[in-house]
Structure formats: structure tokens, C-alpha cells
Amino acid sequence: MHRKISEKGSAAIAFCLALIIVAFTVITVYMFAAKSWWFPPAISAFGTQIDAQFHRTLVITGIVFVLAQLGLAWVIFRYRDQGRKVEFFEGNSTLEFVWTVATVVLFVGLGLYGEHAWAEAHFQGAAPGALQVEITGQQFAWNFRYAGPDGKWGQTKPELVSASSGNPLGLDPRDPAAKDDIVSPTMYVPEGREVEVLIRTQDVTHSFYVRELRLKQDAVPGMVIHMHFNATVPGEYEIACAELCGLGHYRMRSFLYVVSQADYDKWIRDQEAALQ
């Protein structure tokens, strides 16, 4: 069977395959270095930390990737059938041991290193005095609720929910705490202020996702999930839904406005005025 492929043909195939693998490796490395399509800049210290861990991982996996692919290309070309005798061996325990230990150290070490950012996001609560915002997902919109001057969340009732008549969260008008609750389809936060978000959903699973914050959290039916962030760069940022939630999943978006404290205060005053 193999005699059909002449030595010359074998060399051609080996050369082509090795070349393709090398070319693919070079192009991949170039694309990752060129960053034509890349993260948007982070707007929080936490985001910068995530980016650093990403780069660490990228460098390590990049080195392994290049070595493995080029090694593969090399053995393909070098050890094509040239009618010689093979070098007979069935294994090498020392080598097996060395590369097993090396990968354990590399992979597990990398994992441990990255846990720091996770711990900051999840094990620590929000700083005291954080601004609280409740985020509610529903097919296919986000609503953001601020507790208002009394600092208390008003009661909501499922049977009162009516997006069409302007009560998307089902605030109970008979509850005094609900009267001053601000419900907005977009999210405003002051720059440099710790914000604690309470993420929930009315119907199916959604996922609150702001790229610039490097933050994503599922909104799970029946749960209220706390996250916190501190955005330091003013601007308009898109909020997208990252968990399949139905036919309008792709257009379930809103905006996060990171503004100065003064602008934030003004926005809150305007919202309160509109409630009257």
C-alpha cells in the first residue's frame, strides 16, 4: 500500500503538511500579537487585573502552542518515509515523568495564580457604603432600580408586573417604600464609586454582561446574585445579554453610563422629579 506513494511523493506531502502547520502557527501568533480584534479597554482596576491574568495565560499557552505545533511540523518533515529503519523504542519513563511534573506545575500554577481576581470579585463583598442597584432581566430588556432617598427597596408583586403600563418590575403602589424607587431602562453610576448590583430575572435565565467591566453574571430565576464593581473611566458602555434567553436574545441590550458624581446627582434628581 505505502509503496504506491513514492519517496518523492511522500516528501511532497510531508513538506506541504509541515508547511501548513508552520504557516498556521505563524499566522495565529501574528493575529494574537496584532490585536486587530481585541478586548475593549478595561474601565476598572479589577478589569486591568483580569487583563493581566489573560496575558499571562496567553504567553504560557502561546509558548506551548508554538513548541507543540512546530515540533509536530518538524517530526512530520524529518521522519517521513525515506526507506530507512525506524529508531525502535517503546517509551521512556524519565521523559514521561519530567513532562508530567512540568505540566502539573505549569497548569495548576497558572490556575492558582488566576484565582486571585476571582476571589476579589466573589469572596469579598462590596465595600461599605456602596451604591446599590438592582438589575432585573426579562424577555428582552433590562431594568435598573435605585432605592431612592429612603434607601429601601419597595415591595414587588408578580401580578402587578406590566411592562406595557410602565410598571415592569411590578412595584406595589401601596407600599410606601416603593413610592420613591427609581426604575430606569439604562444604568447610571458615578465614576470611582463602589457599586453593588443585585442581579435577578423575572422569567428565564439571562446574563448581565459589560465587556469593559470584564464582568458577567447569570441572572437566575429564583435567585438574587450580588456582584460589585468600581468603574473609573466615564463613558457610555453597552450592556448585553450573554445567556440564551429566547428569540430576542441578540437584542437584549442596554447602556451603562459612568458619569461624574455631579452628573449622577443631577440624573437622580431628574428621575425623582419625573416620579412626582
Binding site: E87, F88, F89, E90, G91, N92
Partner: peptide, 8 residues
């Protein structure tokens, strides 16, 4: 690279 082979 030396290899060890078990006897048949």
C-alpha cells in the same frame, strides 16, 4: 533513545 521490550 534506549527502549525496553518485554520478552515474548
Amino acid at each position: 533513545m534506549p527502549g525496553t521490550i518485554t520478552d515474548d
